[in-house]
């Protein structure tokens, strides 16, 4: 992504302290953040994927050895994060690029998105471990709880980004652009699920 900067020192890391400075200066390499973000996706989407993999493994006619290779926890874990990671990365890039005319520090914004969203995914993944003890909460987790946690971290991301990377005269427009895409994508997914349920009747 092409880096453009505004003529403001709002995101100047030299003027910040502690975690804010660490985040804005992007001290931790982006490649490492991306890898960790991918594992966070795997962690957050692992529990529902375990059921999908078990379902597929028990329904296909395959030898036990084939099932042992493909129907295990590791496959479920890695497979879980793959599609959400690719789709979210793509949408996040498109959304941030769509704000190029505001001349913001899009590279830092994308970096911050990875950090905040990754943290949200890690927290929701940790919450999902409750499904080991209460497995019947898996649907509640994958539809409601994960969304609520991720939305909370999106709010934190927006507040942090607006404060440090966006000048006040673009706050409204930047917040609306990012929040709108995030909420509409989730709304579309919910509507697809509802329509799918109705079609099954």
């Amino acid at each position: 992504m092409e880096e453009t900067t505004i003529n403001s020192n709002a995101n100047n890391p030299e003027t910040k302290r502690g975690i804010t400075k660490l985040l804005l200066s992007r001290k931790v390499p982006e490649a490492l953040i991306t890898i960790l973000e991918f594992f966070a996706y795997c962690f957050a989407y692992w529990m529902p994927m375990r059921l999908t993999v078990a379902s597929v493994a028990s329904s296909i006619v395959a030898s036990e050895s084939v099932m042992a290779v493909f129907g295990n926890e590791l496959v479920a874990f890695l497979l879980a994060g793959l599609i959400p990671f690719i789709v979210t990365e793509m949408l996040a890039n498109i959304t941030l690029r769509s704000m190029f005319m505001f001349k913001l520090d899009l590279t830092t914004m994308r970096y911050l998105f990875r950090v905040f969203y990754g943290l949200g995914l890690t927290i929701s993944g940790a919450v999902s471990l409750i499904c080991f003890w209460l497995p019947f909460t898996v649907l509640l987790y994958s539809v409601v709880i994960r969304f609520v946690i991720l939305t909370a971290f999106m709010v934190l991301y927006l507040v942090f980004t607006l404060k440090h990377c966006v000048p006040p005269h673009i706050w409204g427009r930047a917040m609306f652009t990012i929040a709108r895409v995030y909420l509409l994508i989730n709304l579309i997914l919910a509507v697809i699920e509802i329509v799918g349920w109705v079609m099954q009747l």
Binding site: L139, L187, A190, V191, E193, I194, V198
Partner: peptide, 17 residues
């Protein structure tokens, strides 16, 4: 409620709206 994809998604839909 915990098994109903419909109700859970309606809840999320209302929340998003």
């Amino acid at each position: 409620y915990l098994s109903s994809t419909l109700w859970l998604n309606i809840t999320v839909g209302v929340l998003i709206s």
